[in-house]
Simulated assay, not measured.
Amino acid sequence: MDGEATRARILETAGQLFAERGYADTTSKAICERAQCNMAAVNYHFGSRDGLYLSLLKEVHKHLISLDYLARLAHSAQPPRQKLEAFLDGLTASLLNSEGWHIRLWAREVLAPSPHLAGIIEAEALPKFGLISAIIGEITGIPPGDPALTRCVLSVMAPCMMLLVIHRDMNSPIQAIFEQPAEVLASHLKTYALAGLDAIVAARAAPVRSKRAR
């Protein structure tokens, strides 16, 4: 139990420091001083400073929406529209209700990438992208591999991606978004996303109907 407490303390401390200073400017010494541990403890639990940073990036993804949860949702028997609504509900709640370092760390990573960004995208983001694509493919009938499906996923995810990188304390028009209840924003995102997907489905069906009419 002492070991788990030490590991958790190192994670929390390092998360705060990396979120404050970024990957390049956060030293092992600073982490150990604030976490009240030595480098041997960091190496024991994470292998190295880089191993610790990778663990933090994985924690960020788990904090936002875990791969296990998304896989269960995508493979569930729910109607596809309900799957997408549940996904947006969960992600929006994580984005707006997060008080910790997770969102700030990810914003720093995206805006000033470390050498680990490509690896974490491959390990965490791409599998999630595939699951979200499958859900949206169910809604639209667009097959996997069709560029139109990728465009749909990007259109649905773009507002959430913006909220991931915008600084919530910065004086900007978007700041008001963080002051409203998560369910209000989620309702808007669901309405907007589903209406857009319905429009895409209708537009793709229109040429087919036109050919049949001729």
Rank of each mutant, 00 (worst) to 15 (best):
I31V: 07
P113A: 04
S66G: 00
S94G: 14
Q175W: 05
P115F: 07
R108S: 13
H45Q: 14
H45P: 12
D169V: 00
M170P: 02
N97D: 08
R151K: 06
E124V: 07
A158F: 02
T27F: 08
E122Q: 03
I166N: 00
L197P: 00
K190E: 08
R204A: 05
L88Q: 15
W106E: 00
P173F: 03
I177P: 03
E124Q: 10
D25R: 14
M157H: 04
A125D: 11
E33C: 07
A199H: 04
H63G: 03
A107V: 10
A86I: 15
A93Y: 14
P80G: 10
P147L: 03
G90Q: 15
L56K: 05
S48G: 04
V208G: 02
R81C: 13
G15C: 09
D198E: 10
T92E: 14
A74F: 00
G22L: 11
L88F: 15
S155M: 08
V184C: 10
I120N: 02
V42Q: 12
H61I: 11
H116Y: 03
S76C: 02
A30L: 12
A40D: 13
I65G: 07
T140R: 00
A195I: 09
E183M: 11
K83W: 11
A14E: 09
A19Q: 09
V60P: 05
G130N: 08
E85S: 15
A202Y: 02
C160I: 07
G3Q: 10
L185Y: 12
S94I: 08
P144T: 01
A134E: 11
V110I: 14
P144F: 00
G51H: 02
A19L: 08
C37Q: 11
R209H: 13
L189H: 10
M157Y: 06
I142E: 03
